[in-house]
Design a protein around this nucleic acid. Structure first.
Lengths: 147, 147, 147, 147
DNA sequence: TTTT
DNA sequence: TTTT
Protein backbone atom coordinates (compact mmCIF):
# COMPACT_ATOMS: atom_id res chain seq x y z
CA UNK A 1 0.00 0.00 0.00
CA UNK A 2 1.01 3.54 -0.42
CA UNK A 3 2.65 5.43 2.38
CA UNK A 4 4.27 8.71 3.32
CA UNK A 5 8.01 9.20 3.74
CA UNK A 6 8.75 12.84 4.34
CA UNK A 7 11.62 14.70 5.98
CA UNK A 8 11.72 18.40 6.75
CA UNK A 9 15.00 19.95 7.83
CA UNK A 10 16.25 23.45 8.52
CA UNK A 11 19.97 23.59 9.13
CA UNK A 12 23.39 24.69 7.99
CA UNK A 13 25.62 23.03 5.42
CA UNK A 14 28.68 21.46 7.00
CA UNK A 15 30.62 21.55 3.71
CA UNK A 16 30.23 22.81 0.18
CA UNK A 17 28.16 20.45 -1.97
CA UNK A 18 30.23 17.71 -3.61
CA UNK A 19 29.19 17.13 -7.19
CA UNK A 20 29.58 13.97 -9.25
CA UNK A 21 28.67 13.18 -12.80
CA UNK A 22 27.61 9.59 -13.22
CA UNK A 23 27.84 7.53 -16.36
CA UNK A 24 24.99 8.64 -18.54
CA UNK A 25 25.42 12.25 -17.56
CA UNK A 26 23.37 12.24 -14.40
CA UNK A 27 24.48 14.80 -11.85
CA UNK A 28 24.45 14.04 -8.15
CA UNK A 29 25.32 16.40 -5.35
CA UNK A 30 25.68 15.67 -1.67
CA UNK A 31 26.58 17.49 1.51
CA UNK A 32 26.24 17.12 5.26
CA UNK A 33 23.62 19.25 6.97
CA UNK A 34 23.60 20.08 10.67
CA UNK A 35 20.44 20.57 12.68
CA UNK A 36 21.06 21.70 16.23
CA UNK A 37 18.84 21.49 19.23
CA UNK A 38 19.49 23.20 22.53
CA UNK A 39 18.20 21.88 25.80
CA UNK A 40 18.83 22.18 29.48
CA UNK A 41 20.49 19.38 31.40
CA UNK A 42 21.08 19.75 35.12
CA UNK A 43 20.99 23.49 34.80
CA UNK A 44 23.50 23.58 31.99
CA UNK A 45 22.81 24.53 28.43
CA UNK A 46 23.56 21.65 26.11
CA UNK A 47 23.63 21.80 22.35
CA UNK A 48 23.08 18.62 20.42
CA UNK A 49 23.85 18.56 16.74
CA UNK A 50 22.53 15.98 14.36
CA UNK A 51 24.24 15.47 11.02
CA UNK A 52 22.27 14.46 7.95
CA UNK A 53 23.51 13.15 4.61
CA UNK A 54 21.74 15.13 1.93
CA UNK A 55 21.66 13.85 -1.65
CA UNK A 56 20.30 15.75 -4.63
CA UNK A 57 19.84 14.50 -8.19
CA UNK A 58 20.02 16.06 -11.63
CA UNK A 59 18.81 19.61 -11.95
CA UNK A 60 18.38 19.98 -8.25
CA UNK A 61 22.00 18.90 -7.80
CA UNK A 62 23.13 21.50 -10.28
CA UNK A 63 21.29 24.33 -8.63
CA UNK A 64 22.51 23.24 -5.21
CA UNK A 65 26.11 23.21 -6.39
CA UNK A 66 25.68 26.71 -7.72
CA UNK A 67 23.94 28.37 -4.82
CA UNK A 68 24.65 26.48 -1.64
CA UNK A 69 27.89 26.71 0.29
CA UNK A 70 29.27 25.64 3.60
CA UNK A 71 27.59 27.50 6.41
CA UNK A 72 24.43 28.52 4.58
CA UNK A 73 21.03 28.07 6.22
CA UNK A 74 18.62 26.03 4.14
CA UNK A 75 15.17 24.43 4.34
CA UNK A 76 15.16 20.96 2.80
CA UNK A 77 12.28 18.65 2.09
CA UNK A 78 12.89 15.11 0.99
CA UNK A 79 12.55 11.46 1.78
CA UNK A 80 14.55 8.90 3.73
CA UNK A 81 16.45 6.22 1.90
CA UNK A 82 18.77 3.62 3.39
CA UNK A 83 21.37 2.19 1.02
CA UNK A 84 23.88 -0.57 1.46
CA UNK A 85 27.37 -0.42 0.02
CA UNK A 86 30.74 -2.14 0.45
CA UNK A 87 33.58 -0.27 2.08
CA UNK A 88 37.23 -0.68 0.95
CA UNK A 89 37.53 -3.84 3.05
CA UNK A 90 34.49 -5.29 1.26
CA UNK A 91 32.39 -5.04 4.40
CA UNK A 92 28.72 -4.39 3.77
CA UNK A 93 27.58 -1.17 5.36
CA UNK A 94 24.40 0.85 5.50
CA UNK A 95 23.87 4.54 5.29
CA UNK A 96 20.68 6.53 5.62
CA UNK A 97 20.34 9.59 3.44
CA UNK A 98 17.80 12.29 2.79
CA UNK A 99 17.04 12.45 -0.92
CA UNK A 100 16.06 16.08 -1.40
CA UNK A 101 12.87 16.86 -3.28
CA UNK A 102 13.12 20.62 -2.96
CA UNK A 103 14.96 23.22 -0.97
CA UNK A 104 14.64 26.86 -0.06
CA UNK A 105 17.48 29.11 0.91
CA UNK A 106 16.86 30.91 4.17
CA UNK A 107 18.69 33.72 5.86
CA UNK A 108 19.59 37.10 4.58
CA UNK A 109 19.86 37.88 0.91
CA UNK A 110 23.54 38.76 1.23
CA UNK A 111 24.15 35.16 2.21
CA UNK A 112 23.20 34.12 -1.30
CA UNK A 113 24.74 36.97 -3.25
CA UNK A 114 24.55 35.57 -6.72
CA UNK A 115 21.17 34.00 -6.25
CA UNK A 116 17.57 35.08 -5.83
CA UNK A 117 15.81 33.79 -2.79
CA UNK A 118 13.66 31.02 -4.03
CA UNK A 119 12.41 27.50 -3.70
CA UNK A 120 14.02 24.80 -5.75
CA UNK A 121 11.99 21.76 -6.59
CA UNK A 122 12.89 18.38 -7.97
CA UNK A 123 9.73 18.02 -9.96
CA UNK A 124 9.08 21.00 -12.13
CA UNK A 125 9.81 22.10 -15.65
CA UNK A 126 11.92 25.03 -16.63
CA UNK A 127 15.67 24.99 -16.53
CA UNK A 128 17.42 26.97 -13.83
CA UNK A 129 18.47 30.51 -14.68
CA UNK A 130 19.98 33.14 -12.50
CA UNK A 131 17.45 35.65 -11.20
CA UNK A 132 14.59 33.44 -12.12
CA UNK A 133 12.48 30.84 -10.46
CA UNK A 134 14.51 27.66 -10.29
CA UNK A 135 12.38 24.81 -11.36
CA UNK A 136 13.92 21.50 -12.05
CA UNK A 137 12.76 18.21 -13.32
CA UNK A 138 14.67 15.03 -12.65
CA UNK A 139 13.15 12.04 -14.35
CA UNK A 140 15.17 9.34 -12.62
CA UNK A 141 15.97 9.29 -8.97
CA UNK A 142 16.66 5.62 -8.78
CA UNK A 143 20.15 5.51 -10.25
CA UNK A 144 22.90 3.95 -8.20
CA UNK A 145 25.16 6.32 -6.43
CA UNK A 146 28.80 5.22 -6.18
CA UNK A 147 29.78 6.71 -2.83
CA UNK B 1 21.92 27.84 15.98
CA UNK B 2 18.59 26.20 16.23
CA UNK B 3 17.24 24.07 13.44
CA UNK B 4 14.40 21.81 12.43
CA UNK B 5 14.66 18.03 12.30
CA UNK B 6 11.29 16.57 11.51
CA UNK B 7 10.15 13.29 10.00
CA UNK B 8 6.59 12.43 8.96
CA UNK B 9 5.77 8.85 8.07
CA UNK B 10 2.66 6.88 7.25
CA UNK B 11 3.27 3.17 6.97
CA UNK B 12 2.74 -0.32 8.31
CA UNK B 13 4.55 -1.97 11.20
CA UNK B 14 6.78 -4.80 10.02
CA UNK B 15 6.77 -6.42 13.47
CA UNK B 16 5.15 -6.02 16.83
CA UNK B 17 6.88 -3.38 18.97
CA UNK B 18 9.79 -4.75 20.98
CA UNK B 19 9.85 -3.34 24.50
CA UNK B 20 12.86 -2.97 26.79
CA UNK B 21 13.14 -1.67 30.32
CA UNK B 22 16.41 0.09 30.89
CA UNK B 23 18.19 0.50 34.20
CA UNK B 24 16.37 3.24 36.00
CA UNK B 25 13.00 2.08 34.81
CA UNK B 26 12.93 3.84 31.48
CA UNK B 27 10.84 2.05 28.87
CA UNK B 28 11.92 1.95 25.24
CA UNK B 29 10.00 0.43 22.37
CA UNK B 30 11.11 -0.06 18.80
CA UNK B 31 9.78 -1.52 15.59
CA UNK B 32 10.41 -1.41 11.86
CA UNK B 33 8.00 0.61 9.76
CA UNK B 34 7.52 0.20 6.01
CA UNK B 35 6.63 3.04 3.70
CA UNK B 36 5.95 1.91 0.17
CA UNK B 37 5.99 3.88 -3.00
CA UNK B 38 4.72 2.64 -6.33
CA UNK B 39 5.99 3.91 -9.63
CA UNK B 40 6.09 2.94 -13.23
CA UNK B 41 9.30 1.74 -14.85
CA UNK B 42 9.34 0.80 -18.51
CA UNK B 43 5.64 0.14 -18.43
CA UNK B 44 5.84 -2.12 -15.40
CA UNK B 45 4.51 -1.31 -11.98
CA UNK B 46 7.32 -1.29 -9.44
CA UNK B 47 6.91 -1.10 -5.70
CA UNK B 48 9.75 0.24 -3.62
CA UNK B 49 9.62 -0.20 0.12
CA UNK B 50 11.69 1.78 2.56
CA UNK B 51 12.22 0.45 6.09
CA UNK B 52 12.53 2.80 9.03
CA UNK B 53 13.74 2.07 12.56
CA UNK B 54 11.22 3.63 14.91
CA UNK B 55 12.16 4.23 18.55
CA UNK B 56 9.76 5.40 21.26
CA UNK B 57 10.58 6.38 24.83
CA UNK B 58 8.79 6.16 28.14
CA UNK B 59 5.06 6.70 28.09
CA UNK B 60 4.94 6.76 24.35
CA UNK B 61 6.73 3.39 24.31
CA UNK B 62 4.17 1.97 26.69
CA UNK B 63 1.20 3.10 24.68
CA UNK B 64 2.79 1.86 21.48
CA UNK B 65 3.42 -1.57 22.97
CA UNK B 66 -0.20 -1.73 24.01
CA UNK B 67 -1.91 -0.57 20.85
CA UNK B 68 0.36 -1.13 17.88
CA UNK B 69 0.90 -4.48 16.26
CA UNK B 70 2.50 -5.90 13.18
CA UNK B 71 0.63 -4.84 10.07
CA UNK B 72 -1.11 -1.78 11.52
CA UNK B 73 -1.17 1.49 9.61
CA UNK B 74 0.19 4.40 11.61
CA UNK B 75 1.13 8.08 11.22
CA UNK B 76 4.38 8.86 13.01
CA UNK B 77 6.05 12.18 13.64
CA UNK B 78 9.53 12.35 15.06
CA UNK B 79 13.12 13.31 14.50
CA UNK B 80 16.16 11.72 12.94
CA UNK B 81 18.98 10.50 15.12
CA UNK B 82 22.09 8.64 14.01
CA UNK B 83 23.77 6.55 16.71
CA UNK B 84 27.00 4.61 16.71
CA UNK B 85 27.40 1.26 18.43
CA UNK B 86 29.77 -1.69 18.42
CA UNK B 87 28.63 -4.97 16.95
CA UNK B 88 29.64 -8.38 18.40
CA UNK B 89 32.96 -8.19 16.57
CA UNK B 90 33.64 -4.80 18.18
CA UNK B 91 33.26 -3.05 14.85
CA UNK B 92 31.86 0.44 15.10
CA UNK B 93 28.62 0.81 13.21
CA UNK B 94 26.05 3.50 12.62
CA UNK B 95 22.31 3.31 12.53
CA UNK B 96 19.79 6.04 11.78
CA UNK B 97 16.54 5.94 13.70
CA UNK B 98 13.36 7.95 13.92
CA UNK B 99 12.73 8.95 17.51
CA UNK B 100 8.94 9.24 17.64
CA UNK B 101 7.41 12.35 19.16
CA UNK B 102 3.81 11.36 18.59
CA UNK B 103 1.79 8.91 16.58
CA UNK B 104 -1.75 8.44 15.38
CA UNK B 105 -3.33 5.17 14.49
CA UNK B 106 -4.93 5.18 11.06
CA UNK B 107 -7.20 2.71 9.39
CA UNK B 108 -10.42 1.24 10.54
CA UNK B 109 -11.42 0.90 14.14
CA UNK B 110 -11.49 -2.89 13.95
CA UNK B 111 -7.79 -2.74 13.28
CA UNK B 112 -7.28 -1.38 16.78
CA UNK B 113 -9.88 -3.37 18.67
CA UNK B 114 -8.87 -2.67 22.21
CA UNK B 115 -8.00 0.97 21.57
CA UNK B 116 -9.74 4.25 20.87
CA UNK B 117 -8.61 6.11 17.82
CA UNK B 118 -6.41 8.84 19.07
CA UNK B 119 -3.17 10.72 18.80
CA UNK B 120 -0.39 9.86 21.18
CA UNK B 121 2.13 12.50 22.02
CA UNK B 122 5.50 12.38 23.72
CA UNK B 123 5.02 15.68 25.46
CA UNK B 124 1.79 15.85 27.36
CA UNK B 125 0.55 15.17 30.83
CA UNK B 126 -1.96 12.61 31.86
CA UNK B 127 -1.21 8.94 32.05
CA UNK B 128 -2.65 6.71 29.37
CA UNK B 129 -5.96 5.04 30.09
CA UNK B 130 -8.09 2.86 27.92
CA UNK B 131 -10.95 4.73 26.28
CA UNK B 132 -9.44 8.04 27.10
CA UNK B 133 -7.17 10.50 25.43
CA UNK B 134 -3.66 9.16 25.60
CA UNK B 135 -1.37 11.87 26.69
CA UNK B 136 2.10 11.07 27.73
CA UNK B 137 4.98 12.92 29.18
CA UNK B 138 8.51 11.65 28.84
CA UNK B 139 10.99 13.76 30.76
CA UNK B 140 14.15 12.29 29.37
CA UNK B 141 14.72 11.34 25.79
CA UNK B 142 18.46 11.43 25.93
CA UNK B 143 19.19 8.16 27.70
CA UNK B 144 21.50 5.68 26.06
CA UNK B 145 19.85 2.81 24.33
CA UNK B 146 21.76 -0.48 24.54
CA UNK B 147 20.76 -2.12 21.28
CA UNK C 1 12.27 36.70 0.87
CA UNK C 2 11.38 33.14 0.32
CA UNK C 3 9.33 31.23 2.84
CA UNK C 4 7.60 27.94 3.53
CA UNK C 5 3.85 27.46 3.40
CA UNK C 6 3.01 23.81 3.89
CA UNK C 7 -0.06 21.97 5.10
CA UNK C 8 -0.28 18.26 5.87
CA UNK C 9 -3.69 16.71 6.45
CA UNK C 10 -5.05 13.23 6.97
CA UNK C 11 -8.83 13.11 7.03
CA UNK C 12 -12.06 12.02 5.42
CA UNK C 13 -13.87 13.68 2.53
CA UNK C 14 -17.14 15.23 3.62
CA UNK C 15 -18.54 15.16 0.08
CA UNK C 16 -17.63 13.88 -3.35
CA UNK C 17 -15.26 16.23 -5.18
CA UNK C 18 -17.04 18.96 -7.11
CA UNK C 19 -15.47 19.54 -10.51
CA UNK C 20 -15.54 22.70 -12.59
CA UNK C 21 -14.13 23.47 -16.01
CA UNK C 22 -13.01 27.06 -16.25
CA UNK C 23 -12.75 29.12 -19.39
CA UNK C 24 -9.60 27.97 -21.11
CA UNK C 25 -10.20 24.37 -20.21
CA UNK C 26 -8.64 24.39 -16.78
CA UNK C 27 -10.13 21.83 -14.43
CA UNK C 28 -10.65 22.60 -10.76
CA UNK C 29 -11.93 20.25 -8.11
CA UNK C 30 -12.82 20.99 -4.53
CA UNK C 31 -14.18 19.20 -1.52
CA UNK C 32 -14.42 19.58 2.24
CA UNK C 33 -12.07 17.44 4.33
CA UNK C 34 -12.62 16.64 8.00
CA UNK C 35 -9.78 16.14 10.45
CA UNK C 36 -10.96 15.02 13.85
CA UNK C 37 -9.22 15.19 17.16
CA UNK C 38 -10.38 13.48 20.31
CA UNK C 39 -9.58 14.74 23.76
CA UNK C 40 -10.76 14.41 27.29
CA UNK C 41 -12.66 17.22 28.95
CA UNK C 42 -13.82 16.83 32.56
CA UNK C 43 -13.71 13.08 32.21
CA UNK C 44 -15.76 13.05 29.04
CA UNK C 45 -14.55 12.12 25.62
CA UNK C 46 -14.91 15.06 23.28
CA UNK C 47 -14.44 14.97 19.55
CA UNK C 48 -13.56 18.13 17.72
CA UNK C 49 -13.76 18.20 13.96
CA UNK C 50 -12.07 20.76 11.80
CA UNK C 51 -13.29 21.27 8.23
CA UNK C 52 -10.87 22.24 5.47
CA UNK C 53 -11.62 23.53 1.98
CA UNK C 54 -9.46 21.53 -0.40
CA UNK C 55 -8.84 22.80 -3.92
CA UNK C 56 -7.08 20.88 -6.67
CA UNK C 57 -6.07 22.10 -10.11
CA UNK C 58 -5.76 20.54 -13.54
CA UNK C 59 -4.52 16.98 -13.67
CA UNK C 60 -4.65 16.63 -9.94
CA UNK C 61 -8.30 17.73 -10.05
CA UNK C 62 -9.05 15.13 -12.65
CA UNK C 63 -7.48 12.30 -10.73
CA UNK C 64 -9.20 13.40 -7.54
CA UNK C 65 -12.59 13.46 -9.23
CA UNK C 66 -11.99 9.96 -10.49
CA UNK C 67 -10.69 8.30 -7.35
CA UNK C 68 -11.85 10.21 -4.31
CA UNK C 69 -15.33 9.98 -2.89
CA UNK C 70 -17.21 11.07 0.16
CA UNK C 71 -15.99 9.22 3.21
CA UNK C 72 -12.57 8.20 1.88
CA UNK C 73 -9.46 8.63 4.03
CA UNK C 74 -6.76 10.64 2.31
CA UNK C 75 -3.36 12.23 3.02
CA UNK C 76 -3.12 15.70 1.47
CA UNK C 77 -0.15 17.99 1.17
CA UNK C 78 -0.58 21.53 -0.03
CA UNK C 79 -0.36 25.19 0.79
CA UNK C 80 -2.59 27.76 2.40
CA UNK C 81 -4.21 30.43 0.31
CA UNK C 82 -6.71 33.04 1.44
CA UNK C 83 -8.93 34.47 -1.29
CA UNK C 84 -11.46 37.25 -1.24
CA UNK C 85 -14.70 37.11 -3.17
CA UNK C 86 -18.07 38.86 -3.24
CA UNK C 87 -21.13 37.00 -2.07
CA UNK C 88 -24.56 37.42 -3.71
CA UNK C 89 -25.15 40.60 -1.70
CA UNK C 90 -21.88 42.02 -3.03
CA UNK C 91 -20.29 41.77 0.40
CA UNK C 92 -16.57 41.09 0.31
CA UNK C 93 -15.69 37.88 2.06
CA UNK C 94 -12.58 35.85 2.69
CA UNK C 95 -12.03 32.16 2.56
CA UNK C 96 -8.93 30.16 3.37
CA UNK C 97 -8.29 27.08 1.28
CA UNK C 98 -5.69 24.37 1.02
CA UNK C 99 -4.40 24.19 -2.53
CA UNK C 100 -3.36 20.55 -2.84
CA UNK C 101 0.06 19.76 -4.24
CA UNK C 102 -0.26 16.02 -3.94
CA UNK C 103 -2.37 13.42 -2.22
CA UNK C 104 -2.21 9.78 -1.26
CA UNK C 105 -5.17 7.56 -0.69
CA UNK C 106 -5.02 5.76 2.62
CA UNK C 107 -7.11 2.95 3.99
CA UNK C 108 -7.84 -0.39 2.54
CA UNK C 109 -7.74 -1.19 -1.13
CA UNK C 110 -11.42 -2.03 -1.20
CA UNK C 111 -12.07 1.58 -0.31
CA UNK C 112 -10.64 2.59 -3.66
CA UNK C 113 -11.98 -0.23 -5.80
CA UNK C 114 -11.22 1.10 -9.24
CA UNK C 115 -7.92 2.64 -8.28
CA UNK C 116 -4.41 1.53 -7.41
CA UNK C 117 -3.02 2.79 -4.17
CA UNK C 118 -0.69 5.54 -5.09
CA UNK C 119 0.51 9.06 -4.57
CA UNK C 120 -0.77 11.78 -6.84
CA UNK C 121 1.37 14.82 -7.38
CA UNK C 122 0.72 18.19 -8.91
CA UNK C 123 4.15 18.49 -10.41
CA UNK C 124 5.04 15.47 -12.46
CA UNK C 125 4.80 14.34 -16.03
CA UNK C 126 2.83 11.43 -17.33
CA UNK C 127 -0.88 11.51 -17.79
CA UNK C 128 -3.02 9.56 -15.35
CA UNK C 129 -3.92 6.02 -16.35
CA UNK C 130 -5.75 3.39 -14.43
CA UNK C 131 -3.46 0.86 -12.82
CA UNK C 132 -0.45 3.04 -13.31
CA UNK C 133 1.43 5.63 -11.34
CA UNK C 134 -0.57 8.83 -11.43
CA UNK C 135 1.70 11.68 -12.18
CA UNK C 136 0.31 14.99 -13.10
CA UNK C 137 1.63 18.28 -14.19
CA UNK C 138 -0.34 21.47 -13.79
CA UNK C 139 1.40 24.47 -15.27
CA UNK C 140 -0.82 27.18 -13.85
CA UNK C 141 -2.10 27.24 -10.35
CA UNK C 142 -2.80 30.92 -10.26
CA UNK C 143 -6.03 31.09 -12.18
CA UNK C 144 -8.99 32.70 -10.51
CA UNK C 145 -11.57 30.38 -9.16
CA UNK C 146 -15.14 31.65 -9.38
CA UNK C 147 -16.62 30.11 -6.27
CA UNK D 1 -11.70 8.77 13.57
CA UNK D 2 -8.43 10.43 14.27
CA UNK D 3 -6.76 12.61 11.70
CA UNK D 4 -3.79 14.88 11.10
CA UNK D 5 -4.01 18.65 10.92
CA UNK D 6 -0.54 20.12 10.62
CA UNK D 7 0.81 23.38 9.29
CA UNK D 8 4.47 24.24 8.78
CA UNK D 9 5.41 27.82 8.01
CA UNK D 10 8.63 29.75 7.64
CA UNK D 11 8.08 33.46 7.27
CA UNK D 12 8.43 36.94 8.68
CA UNK D 13 6.22 38.63 11.25
CA UNK D 14 4.18 41.44 9.75
CA UNK D 15 3.70 43.10 13.14
CA UNK D 16 4.80 42.72 16.72
CA UNK D 17 2.77 40.10 18.59
CA UNK D 18 -0.40 41.50 20.14
CA UNK D 19 -0.98 40.11 23.61
CA UNK D 20 -4.28 39.74 25.45
CA UNK D 21 -5.09 38.45 28.89
CA UNK D 22 -8.42 36.69 28.97
CA UNK D 23 -10.66 36.28 31.97
CA UNK D 24 -9.14 33.56 34.05
CA UNK D 25 -5.62 34.72 33.39
CA UNK D 26 -5.07 32.96 30.09
CA UNK D 27 -2.63 34.72 27.81
CA UNK D 28 -3.15 34.81 24.06
CA UNK D 29 -0.84 36.32 21.50
CA UNK D 30 -1.41 36.79 17.80
CA UNK D 31 0.38 38.24 14.82
CA UNK D 32 0.30 38.10 11.03
CA UNK D 33 3.01 36.07 9.32
CA UNK D 34 4.02 36.47 5.69
CA UNK D 35 5.24 33.61 3.54
CA UNK D 36 6.43 34.70 0.13
CA UNK D 37 6.85 32.70 -2.98
CA UNK D 38 8.58 33.92 -6.11
CA UNK D 39 7.74 32.63 -9.52
CA UNK D 40 8.15 33.57 -13.13
CA UNK D 41 5.20 34.79 -15.16
CA UNK D 42 5.67 35.70 -18.81
CA UNK D 43 9.34 36.31 -18.21
CA UNK D 44 8.75 38.59 -15.26
CA UNK D 45 9.61 37.83 -11.70
CA UNK D 46 6.47 37.86 -9.54
CA UNK D 47 6.39 37.67 -5.80
CA UNK D 48 3.25 36.38 -4.16
CA UNK D 49 2.84 36.86 -0.45
CA UNK D 50 0.43 34.90 1.66
CA UNK D 51 -0.60 36.24 5.06
CA UNK D 52 -1.38 33.90 7.94
CA UNK D 53 -3.10 34.64 11.25
CA UNK D 54 -0.96 33.09 13.94
CA UNK D 55 -2.41 32.50 17.41
CA UNK D 56 -0.46 31.33 20.45
CA UNK D 57 -1.79 30.38 23.85
CA UNK D 58 -0.51 30.61 27.41
CA UNK D 59 3.19 30.07 27.91
CA UNK D 60 3.86 29.98 24.21
CA UNK D 61 2.11 33.36 23.92
CA UNK D 62 4.31 34.77 26.63
CA UNK D 63 7.53 33.63 25.07
CA UNK D 64 6.43 34.87 21.68
CA UNK D 65 5.61 38.30 23.06
CA UNK D 66 9.05 38.45 24.60
CA UNK D 67 11.18 37.25 21.73
CA UNK D 68 9.37 37.82 18.47
CA UNK D 69 9.10 41.16 16.76
CA UNK D 70 7.97 42.55 13.47
CA UNK D 71 10.28 41.47 10.69
CA UNK D 72 11.78 38.43 12.41
CA UNK D 73 12.09 35.14 10.54
CA UNK D 74 10.45 32.25 12.32
CA UNK D 75 9.56 28.58 11.81
CA UNK D 76 6.07 27.82 13.09
CA UNK D 77 4.33 24.50 13.48
CA UNK D 78 0.67 24.36 14.38
CA UNK D 79 -2.79 23.39 13.30
CA UNK D 80 -5.57 24.98 11.30
CA UNK D 81 -8.68 26.21 13.03
CA UNK D 82 -11.58 28.07 11.49
CA UNK D 83 -13.65 30.19 13.89
CA UNK D 84 -16.81 32.13 13.40
CA UNK D 85 -17.45 35.48 15.05
CA UNK D 86 -19.78 38.44 14.67
CA UNK D 87 -18.42 41.71 13.39
CA UNK D 88 -19.62 45.12 14.66
CA UNK D 89 -22.63 44.94 12.36
CA UNK D 90 -23.56 41.55 13.85
CA UNK D 91 -22.68 39.80 10.62
CA UNK D 92 -21.36 36.30 11.08
CA UNK D 93 -17.89 35.92 9.67
CA UNK D 94 -15.28 33.22 9.49
CA UNK D 95 -11.56 33.40 9.95
CA UNK D 96 -8.97 30.66 9.60
CA UNK D 97 -6.03 30.77 11.97
CA UNK D 98 -2.93 28.76 12.66
CA UNK D 99 -2.84 27.77 16.31
CA UNK D 100 0.88 27.47 16.99
CA UNK D 101 2.15 24.36 18.73
CA UNK D 102 5.79 25.33 18.70
CA UNK D 103 8.10 27.77 16.99
CA UNK D 104 11.79 28.22 16.33
CA UNK D 105 13.49 31.50 15.67
CA UNK D 106 15.58 31.44 12.52
CA UNK D 107 18.06 33.89 11.13
CA UNK D 108 21.10 35.30 12.73
CA UNK D 109 21.58 35.45 16.46
CA UNK D 110 21.78 39.23 16.43
CA UNK D 111 18.19 39.22 15.21
CA UNK D 112 17.14 37.84 18.58
CA UNK D 113 19.53 39.72 20.83
CA UNK D 114 17.97 39.07 24.18
CA UNK D 115 17.12 35.47 23.42
CA UNK D 116 18.91 32.21 22.89
CA UNK D 117 18.19 30.43 19.67
CA UNK D 118 15.83 27.70 20.56
CA UNK D 119 12.64 25.85 19.87
CA UNK D 120 9.56 26.76 21.82
CA UNK D 121 6.92 24.15 22.32
CA UNK D 122 3.35 24.30 23.51
CA UNK D 123 3.54 21.01 25.29
CA UNK D 124 6.45 20.83 27.63
CA UNK D 125 7.18 21.57 31.25
CA UNK D 126 9.61 24.07 32.57
CA UNK D 127 8.87 27.73 32.68
CA UNK D 128 10.65 29.95 30.22
CA UNK D 129 13.88 31.56 31.38
CA UNK D 130 16.29 33.66 29.48
CA UNK D 131 19.30 31.71 28.26
CA UNK D 132 17.58 28.45 28.86
CA UNK D 133 15.52 26.01 26.90
CA UNK D 134 12.03 27.43 26.60
CA UNK D 135 9.55 24.74 27.34
CA UNK D 136 5.99 25.62 27.88
CA UNK D 137 2.91 23.79 28.86
CA UNK D 138 -0.52 25.10 28.05
CA UNK D 139 -3.26 22.95 29.51
CA UNK D 140 -6.19 24.52 27.75
CA UNK D 141 -6.24 25.51 24.15
CA UNK D 142 -9.97 25.46 23.79
CA UNK D 143 -10.84 28.77 25.38
CA UNK D 144 -12.78 31.24 23.35
CA UNK D 145 -10.81 34.03 21.87
CA UNK D 146 -12.63 37.38 21.72
CA UNK D 147 -11.11 38.88 18.61
C1' DT E 1 -20.54 17.47 5.47
C1' DT E 2 -16.48 12.82 7.16
C1' DT E 3 -14.94 9.14 10.39
C1' DT E 4 -14.98 6.13 14.95
C1' DT F 1 9.77 -7.60 8.16
C1' DT F 2 4.49 -4.36 6.40
C1' DT F 3 0.79 -3.35 3.00
C1' DT F 4 -1.84 -3.68 -1.78
Amino acid sequence: MSGINKVILVGHLGKDPEVRHLDGGVTVASFPLATSETYNKDGKRVEQTEWHNIVLWRGLAEVASKYLQKGKLVYIEGKLRTRSFEDKEKVKKYVTEIVAENFTMLGRKSDFEQSPSTTLSSSQHTEPKIDDEFTIHPSDENGDLPF
